[in-house]
Design a protein around this nucleic acid. Sequence first.
DNA 1: TTGAAAGCGCTAACAA
DNA 2: TTGTTAGCGCTTTCAA
Lengths: 352, 352
Amino acid sequence: MSNDVPTKADRTGRRGPTIRDVARLADVSIGTASKALNANGRLRPETRDKVRRVAQEIGYRPNDMAQSLHRTRSMTVGIISTDSFGRFTLPIFQALEEQFADQGIAVFMCNATDDPARERQHLDQLLGKRIDGLVVTARRSDKRPAIGPLANNIPIVYVFSQADDPDALSLLPDDEGGASLATRHLLDLGRRRIAHITGPERFEAVQLRHRGYDLALRDAGIAPHPGDYLAGSWSEEWGRDAVARLFDGKAETPDGLFCGNDQIARGAADALRERGIDVPGRVAIVGFDNWEVLATAARPPLSSIDMNLSALGREAGERLLAMIGGARETGVRRLPCTLVIRNSSSPQGTAK
Amino acid sequence: MSNDVPTKADRTGRRGPTIRDVARLADVSIGTASKALNANGRLRPETRDKVRRVAQEIGYRPNDMAQSLHRTRSMTVGIISTDSFGRFTLPIFQALEEQFADQGIAVFMCNATDDPARERQHLDQLLGKRIDGLVVTARRSDKRPAIGPLANNIPIVYVFSQADDPDALSLLPDDEGGASLATRHLLDLGRRRIAHITGPERFEAVQLRHRGYDLALRDAGIAPHPGDYLAGSWSEEWGRDAVARLFDGKAETPDGLFCGNDQIARGAADALRERGIDVPGRVAIVGFDNWEVLATAARPPLSSIDMNLSALGREAGERLLAMIGGARETGVRRLPCTLVIRNSSSPQGTAK
DNA sequence: TTGAAAGCGCTAACAA
DNA sequence: TTGTTAGCGCTTTCAA
C-alpha cells in the first residue's frame, strides 16, 4: 500500500531486483540504467548518480549469468581433483583461488576420488556451466590419462599431475632438482656418505629424486654406496626400519640421510636418537615436502625440501589465464624446489 | 562448402552448439527440440530420437546459465572459509561437495583468510552468481560475526564455525560429549587418576572439552585432582612438557591421560616412553581429532576422539538443501563424536 | 504432434 | 543525452 512500485524481487520472492526495477524507480529507460551502471557511454552526471543511488538503495546487483550470456566468458573456472584433496593440493588450490578471485573469476571445486565415472560427471556439469578454463590436480604427480579435448576446446592445465598427452600443459615441482639440492646441502656440510631413504619406487617422484641424489653425489666425485638407496613406504615406521638396516651392527655408517619425505625423515631421526646417535652431529638429515607441522615437531626439527606448491598454484593460475586469453601452452614445466634449513642439518642454534 | 548449416559454435569459435543448432539440423522447431531433449510433453518418438541423435552428434550441452535465467535456482552454492582451508575443513568440504554433486549442484569455493574485506568481496561475487545457498566454515569453531542477511535471503549454514546470531544455523562437533566419551573410556579401563592436557583456554573447544572431562569424572564419583588439568598449546612439545610436570619427581602419578588433540597426545606418549613408563600398561592415553597420519604413526598408535567431520559435512549439505527448499532452520546443533580405539588405551593386540 | 513467440536479465547497436 | 530494440540460449505457454 505504501509500497510503491513493487520490484520483481517482491513479486517472485526470489532473485534480486533487476535492472528493470532500477530503471523504473530511477525513472529512466533500461538502456540508460545499464549505461549508468557500467560507466560506459555518455550520460548526464546527475542521471548517472540518480540511477546509481537507486541501485544502491534497492541493493541491485547485476545477474552474472545474464551477463555471461552476452560475453563469451562465464567468469568461472573449474578445478577438479581426480584424486581427492589433500595436503599437497591445498596450497595449490589456495594460491589459484586467490589469483582468480583477483580477476573476478569464481572457482568451481570438484572432487572425483579415483572414480572416472564421477570425473566424467563433474566435467559434464562444468561444461554445462560454461567454465572458461579447467585445472586438474592430483594427490601425486604421476601421469594420468588426459582429459579428452573439451568441447569448445576449453583450456586445461594440469598441476601436480601430468597428462599422458604431449599437447597438454603440466606444471610440476622439480623433484630431481630438489633432491640434488638436498644432497648438495649435505655434501656442503662435509658429509661424505649419504644414504637415501625413500618411498615406493612406482612413484615417478621417487625415481626422479633418486636420480637427483645420484647426480649430486657423482658431481661431487662420490660413487653412491649401493646399499645406501632404500626404497620402502612413505611412513615413519619405514624411516625407523631403514635406520636399523643402515646402522645396527655396521662398522661403517652414513653421516648424512636424505629422506624422500618428512615422515620418513622423522622416523629416521627418532630411530637415531634412540640409538644415541647425535643429529646433526654425527648424522645430518634432510627431508622432503617441508610439511611444517611435522618437520617442526620433530626432534630435532627437520631441514626439508619445499616444493613451493603455492608458487606452483600461482603459476598455474597465470598460465590458465593466458590460455583463456588465447595463448597456447604445452609441455611439462617443472618449478624449482627450495631448501628450508632447520636443526637436523645445522649446528644447534644456527637455524631455527 | 561441404559444411552445411554452420553452427553458431563454428561462427563464434567459442561457446558450444545451441539448441537452435540442434533444431536446425534436426529440421524441427526450436520448441520441439527443447521438448525432445527435456523428456516432457508429447512428441512422436521418431522426432524425439532424431533430435537426440543430432544433439549427441554435435555434442550439444545445454547452457546452464541460460537455463538458470528461467528457473529460480542457479544450481550453485558457495562455500566460504573465513579462515583458510585446512585439515579440519577438508573432510567437511569433501562431504559437502559430494552431496551437492549428487543433486547436480556445483560448488564455488572461496577463501577469505581472516580478511573481512576479502570476505565481503567474495560474497559480492557469489551474490552476482546467484548462488542458491552458502556454507561458512572456519579453522576453529569459535563464534564469529554473522554474515549479514544476504540479498534475497539466501540460506546460510555455518559448519565448524558459529555465528553470533541466534537465528543462524550452526553445525558443530559435540566437544563436550567427545571429552566425556574419552574420559569414560579411560574410567572403564579401570583408570582412576586421569589428567587432561589440552590447548589454549581461549578456544571454546578447550573449555567444552574440559567440562566434558570434568562431568565424566564426577559422574564416576571422582573429584578431579586440581593439578591434573593443564592448558597450554596444541603442540607435541607441550605434550612432552606436561608429562614432565605430571610425572617427574612425583610420588603419585596419573594412570590415564586425556589429551586435547593428537599432537599433544603424541608428545605425551613419546615423553612417557622415554621415561620407561609403559603405555598403555601404566598409563593409558586418548587423544582428540583422530588425525590418522599422526595417530597411527605414534608409538603406540593413539586412541582418539573422532569429530566425524564428514558426517558434519553431510548434515550441513542436507540442512542447506532443506533450507533452499524453503525450510527454516536455526540454532546451534552439535553432532556426536566417536571413539577410535588403538593401542594407547588398549592391551597390545586387542585393537589396531 | 509441432511451431511461433514471449520472456528470463542483461548489453549494445541504433534511433530519436 | 536518452530511449528502443534485438539478441545471448533456453523454457514454456499458446496456437496451429
